[in-house]
Write a protein that binds this DNA or RNA. Structure first.
Lengths: 203, 203
DNA sequence: CTTATATTAACCGATACGGTTAATATTGGT
DNA sequence: ACCAATATTAACCGTATCGGTTAATATAAG
């Protein structure tokens, strides 16, 4: 990792790492070509190696960067500072939308990286990893106020179902190849309101 | 396409095309290697070319085969012969589970193939394509008995949400790399019962 | 105009690709 | 046991692409 990268204009930095997020999110580590990243980012391949040393260096930077920014966004949106389930869900998802505005393919990259099996990076990645989703799931079930929920349906199933739906929704967006954060934000809000209406008791 | 392929033992046929479904579902058309398919299927690469001519031939066979089998399963499960939404949903999903039993990666392949952009196959694929999901969506909204649904929430949102959740659920299963159709079938039934309870009126 | 820095075109050896071919197993009839 | 037909593959071919380097060029700074 060459520190000169950070002296580039921010817009150029983002263009480069977004290109990398995109290519690495659409291909396995091994089959994601550096040349494709360079082209997508509008720079030469040589410059990519100049900044990040080698392919592994770039990948690891992307991974650490993704985790840092995710944690930062969760903090900024005070995601964990409520015990209202739907409020927390909304903050969590809106924080992800804000990230998506700057880094449209970061979310897809993180998922793919987490399941990456290539031995060259698997170990390096899991060292720097903290299981965000499992941690948040724990918080929901231990600290959350669940008295507003319908009593006749299983809370865990509700929780699973909502996160399946979010994943499926995002998958559809990625498949369409057109990421419009404002649109996503709006549709996410509609979905959350929908869930609140459906899963909580009237009154 | 060489007709001798069909004279192979059925188990061997399935092993080969399942290997192909797997590799093509995990890589783009261009980056899915024939050698990987051969290895995964336990045969030589030369034999693969002997049966299917070339890469494109294999891919197109997989595509046509997937559509045929999907249609056949929908028919066998009498999916469209009911106007109860949840019954239809259940039949539709269970028919997919039955396919998954023999061809675990066919569903993922179909999705990826549908969105494939490679010019060499894009045209050929869309010729042989009938939009199953859009057609079924139309049927739901035109012929379905919706009087049992809760009146206070939008039907289209319910429909979208359910299909997001199914996609997300399947995505999770594929990412875990362990496809157990019996388990999936059971969990799908739980989800459908869950939705029925949540989205229909009491009484 | 000169030096330092940013950037890239061209290149390199290695590998992986789609596809072919010639040789080897395997089968089935006699 | 033999042979012919068929099934299957190892080895090969030309080409494209890969990660990574280098030497040269463009740009900026003093």
């Amino acid at each position: 990792m060459n520190d000169k990268f950070f002296k580039l204009p921010l817009e150029k930095q983002q263009r480069i790492i977004n290109a990398a997020y995109k290519v690495f999110s659409q291909n396995s580590y091994k089959k994601a070509p550096m040349s494709e990243i360079a082209e997508e980012g509008g720079i030469s391949k040589a410059l990519l190696f100049h900044y990040f040393g080698n392919k592994k260096g770039l990948y690891l930077y992307l991974w650490i960067n993704a985790m840092e920014m995710t944690r930062k966004a969760v903090r900024e949106y005070k995601t964990l500072e409520t015990n209202d389930f739907f409020e927390m869900l909304k903050r969590s998802l809106l924080s992800k939308c804000s990230l998506m505005r700057d880094y449209p393919h970061m979310y897809a990259f993180s998922l793919r990286a987490y399941y990456e099996t290539d031995s060259e990076i698997k170990n390096a990645i899991q060292d720097n990893y903290s299981d965000v989703s499992k941690a948040s799931e724990k918080i929901v079930f231990e600290k959350m106020d669940t008295s507003w929920f319908r009593q006749d349906i299983d809370l865990k199933t509700i929780y699973d179902e909502i996160f399946y739906a979010i994943d499926g929704y995002m998958l559809k967006k990625y498949r369409s190849n057109i990421i419009v954060p404002n649109e996503i934000e709006q549709e996410i809000i509609v979905l959350i309101d929908f869930w609140k209406k459906v899963y909580t008791q009237e009154g």
